[in-house]
Amino acid sequence: MSTMTIAKGINNGLRVAMEKDSRVVLMGEDIGKLGGVFRVTDGLQKDFGEDRVIDTPLAEAGIVGTAIGMALRGYRPVVEIQFDGFIYPAFDHIVSQVAKMRARSLGKVKLPMVIRIPVGGGIGAVEHHSESNEAYFAHTAGLKVVCCSNAEDAYWMIQQAIETDDPVLFYEPKRRYWDKAEVDETAAPRELFKAQVCREGTDATLVAYGPMVKTCLQAAEAAAGEGKNLEVIDLRSLSPLDMDVIAASVEKTGRMVVVHEASTFLGLGAEVAAEVQQRCFYHLEAPVLRVGGYNLPYPPSKLEEEFLPDLDRVLDAVDRSLAY
C-alpha cells in the first residue's frame, strides 16, 4: 500500500505500463523534461529516454495523427493533450480516423492508443482550460471513454486503458490531481469498463464521474447528517456505459440524480436518464434529475463556482427528487 495523489497514480501507472511493454510510448507537449504542465509524466523521459517519451511540436492534430501512425506500426502510444480545450484541433483525427479505422479495415487494423485529457474546471484558469467535452467522444462509435476519480483508479485504469486494444480517451479530473488516497498496487484491480458503487444508500442514487464523484460523496455525507441515506455511483466508464450497476441501484432507491460538470443538454446525464426511464420505469418514484454546468460557454474563472455543480446544488436536486 502507498499513499499517492491522482497525478502520481497515473505517473506510477504509466511507469509500470512502460516497464511491462517496450511498445508503450508517450507523446505530448512538454511531457519530457518538464514532466507535463501537471507533472503527470514527471521523471519518465529521464528513465525511458527521448524515444519513448516524446516532446512533440505544439500541434494537436499532429500529435494524434502521428500517434495513429505509430499505432499502425505496432506501438501503443499514450498521448497527452495538455488541456481539455486543446483537443479540438485533433478532433478530426480522433473522430474520423481513430474511431473508424477498425471498421474501415474490416477488423484488420487495430489502434491501441490512449488519449489522456485533463478535464474540467475549478482551478481558476483562463478560457479553454476548464472544459468538459467527454460527451463528444462518448457519442462517437469506435472510441471508448473513461474517467478516473481517485488515485487508486488512476493507477490501475491508466494501465488497463493502455492494455486495451481499442482506442481509449482517458479523462483526468484536473482539480483533483493532488487528492491523495491509499493505493494497493498488489490487489486485483476493478474491471476498467464497470461502474462502482462507492457509497451504499437506500433513499436516492447519485451518479457521477471524475471530479464530481468527490462532490457527490461530500453531499451524501452531508445528507446523512439530515437522515437521508444516499447511494453514490462512480461511472468510471462513459463508453461503454455500465447501465446494470445504475439500474440495480435505481431499482433499490427509486430516485436518481446525475451530476457532471459538463453542460446538461445532451450530456452524459441525458443518456443515463433515458436509459434509466426505459429500464426502471416501474421502480421510479421521481423523475431523473440532472445537475450540471449551465448550457453556456464556460464562464470566466470568477464565476466558475456559480457555474459548476457543488454540494448545495446536488442536495437541492436530492430534495426535489425526495419531494415527489
Binding site: 516524446i54 492534430a61 499532429g62 495523427g65 500517434a67 501512425g69 499502425l72 506500426r73 505496432g74 474520423s96
Partner: peptide
Amino acid sequence: VIGAQTLHATGYAMGIQRD
C-alpha cells in the same frame, strides 16, 4: 479526409526509426 494520411505516414515513419 484530405491530407490526414500525411500525419499517419509520418507517425509510421517515427515507428520505423524506433524499430
